[in-house]
């Protein structure tokens, strides 16, 4: 079953990659590529956060810290001129994993709301370090002067299309990894921890260690999002690690839905599309966005993907009931 599931996931992943790669030929427009890369970066942030929120029941308010950490480590390494893109990416991901391990080890012991507070506190701490350590990070001005993109393996990311393809491939690889985590026995253990931590404990699961593991995995995946963003904007900025970025990631999750694996990605698409249009037509985007949030939270009461999914489920049940009644 797992084997078949894996093959099916792989097929879907390939299909997704094909869609992403065909897209620029269907809509041959550089703005389209920008949009997708943007969605990929924030999509990775949101999906990795959902590993914690949706699948483990760990509400983190400080997830953007790892997004920023990925972007800054990657940017600094590239600006040093001593590293190629693949190596710099690996070090940035590894460095962020280490950071997440240290912070996670302190945070995951706490329950619910206190976990959320502590992750928030650490994020604010990291943000203030970025702002204060001007000689390294450039402070509020961010990493200035662009992030060089030297060619590697014959790939030149200075070309817009190559960058797009590269980001798409990285994204799909991350999707497959996260999907495998979620579908593995480990993933099901996480769901059990979410639904009933005491029961998991009785069954001999080391809850703290499991939580720490997923915390680190989520952090590393967020760092990939940060790297994609740093490559795209050719810089890294303290705002990447501000609490508003975490807030947006949470918003994307809620917009898309927590129940389906793909939910947060849909949320990312929705929010970016919304942002795009709202910014075009009005400068009162806060007003519009606020009202949209209220409609989702109080009206739909769940994310869009969840809403559609449950609606289908509901219809299916009714269908079965009807058939049974007949």
């Amino acid at each position: 079953m797992t084997g078949r599931g894996f093959l099916r996931d792989l097929a879907i992943a390939v299909a997704l990659l094909v869609v992403l790669l065909v897209l620029p030929t269907v809509v041959p427009h550089p703005a389209m590529r920008d949009f997708v890369i943007y969605v990929i970066a924030y999509g990775l942030l949101a999906m990795s956060l959902n590993l914690l929120v949706g699948f483990t029941g760990l509400v983190s308010f400080g997830h953007a810290a790892y997004f920023a950490s990925g972007a800054y480590i990657f940017g600094l390494l590239m600006q040093s001129g001593k590293f190629g893109i693949p190596l710099a990416m690996l070090i940035a991901i590894g460095g962020t994993a280490l950071l997440a391990l240290v912070i996670g080890a302190i945070c995951v012991r706490l329950k619910e709301i206190y976990f959320a507070f502590l992750t928030l506190a650490f994020q604010m701490f990291i943000h203030s370090i970025i702002l204060t350590w001007v000689s390294l990070t450039g402070g509020d001005q961010g990493l200035m002067g662009g992030i060089p993109r030297p060619p590697f393996l014959g790939i030149d990311l200075n070309n817009g299309m190559s960058l797009y393809v590269f980001c798409s491939v990285v994204f799909v690889v991350c999707m497959v990894i996260m999907r495998q985590v979620v579908q593995s026995p480990f993933g099901y253990t996480l769901r059990m921890i979410r639904d009933n931590p005491h029961r998991a404990n009785f069954l001999g699961v080391n809850v703290v260690r499991m939580k720490l593991a997923i915390f680190v995995i989520a952090g590393t995946m967020a760092s990939v999002g940060g790297i994609v963003m740093a490559l795209f904007v050719s810089g890294a900025y303290p705002e990447f690690g501000f609490w508003t970025t975490s807030g947006e990631a949470i918003f994307m999750i809620m917009l898309g839905g927590t129940q389906l694996f793909i939910g947060p990605f849909i949320g990312a698409i929705l929010l970016q599309t919304l942002n795009h249009y709202v910014t075009i037509y009005t400068e009162h985007h806060g007003l519009v966005l606020g009202i949209v949030i209220l409609v989702f939270v109080l009206g739909l009461r769940r994310g869009l993907a969840d809403f559609v999914y449950l609606w289908f489920q509901d219809r299916k049940t009714k269908q079965i009931e009807k058939e049974a009644g007949r």
């Binding site: 509400v59 949470i250 806060g286 939270v297």
Partner: peptide, 24 residues
């Protein structure tokens, strides 16, 4: 409307009002 629901829902309602009130 969001009592007893996910803390994230409460957070979002408040976030919405932060945005709305700032703009107002």
């Amino acid at each position: 409307k969001v009592y007893g629901r996910d803390v994230l829902m409460q957070l979002l309602v408040c976030y919405a009002f932060i945005l709305i009130l700032d703009d107002m």
